[in-house]
Amino acid sequence: MDPELVQLDQGSGGQAMHELIDGLFLRAFDNPLLRARNDSAVFEIAGGRLAMTTDSYVVDPLFFPGGNIGSLAVHGTVNDLAMCGAKPLYITAGFILEEGLLLGDLKKIVASMAGAAREAGVQVIAGDTKVVPRGKADKLFINTSGIGIVRDGLDIAGSRARPGDLVLINGTIGDHGMAVMCKREGLEFENEIQSDSAALSGLIDRMLCAFSGIHVLRDPTRGGVATTLNEIAEQSGVGIRLEEEALPVRGDVVGACEVLGLDPLYVANEGKVLAIVPPGGAQAVLSAMLSHPLGKSACIMGEVVSDDPGRVYLRTRIGGSRIVDMLRGEQLPRIC
């Protein structure tokens, strides 16, 4: 039997679309707010500050070692909320499907989205589905928006890095971008490079419980660690010095980057957080990270300095130094 393919009428608003929504999305994401099937999800939130974010996912290929576009669409949005010190509550999901997409692939992707949402403790409470003719989109694009409630007593912002603060990361850099790139380019190494895609809300919670005075939290996605740190340096008007020897990079990621002429500092991560922490709290935050499954390789890799304001530089292994600029141009297209 031929595999089932997504048809144009499944986005028409008619019977076929209702069957797709009821049979697939509602079943996978099931919760009372979604089940109500109103034009909007209506919910109550206890008083306080809210965080809201949105992101679109166009990764190619749809499936990569360590995840797929569905789990990524949950992780990315949950992480954006977590980086503001928010506890993620609800997300929405918009699907743009290309006519002819394998229905089996869509089912797998939706199932892993539901799994990722469960793990992250968020509910998918609203959604949308469109189908466009073959060739008008590439297989599947997903948009997710998220809302979360910000914990009291936090002041986390890109502008709060201060000289003397330490730069922490929860593990190796460049894994996601290289997992996608190797899959796409057909590069094989002894062990397949796995994406680090993960929801960081639990880790962040533990870090903030250990020390609530964290100055900056950012996830180094597109543009990588280099670009994210440059943004922070610019917003805070400080310099950031990295130690090349301290940068955590897996051997196979180094190898793949050498082959493709890339620098791991510019390669995207989807399960990493950069934390800028005053020296007094750094050890507590590092211990909290190390005690969490997503922070086993956490380390301190640099320091905020007062020279070179607005810039990031690296002390090289041989004792020299060089600028670490923002990503210029396009290093890796469509990795998230």
Partner: peptide, 9 residues
């Protein structure tokens, strides 16, 4: 040479 910061050394 630039990436290793060799010139200044």
């Amino acid at each position: 040479i630039f990436r290793s910061g060799l010139k200044e050394l």
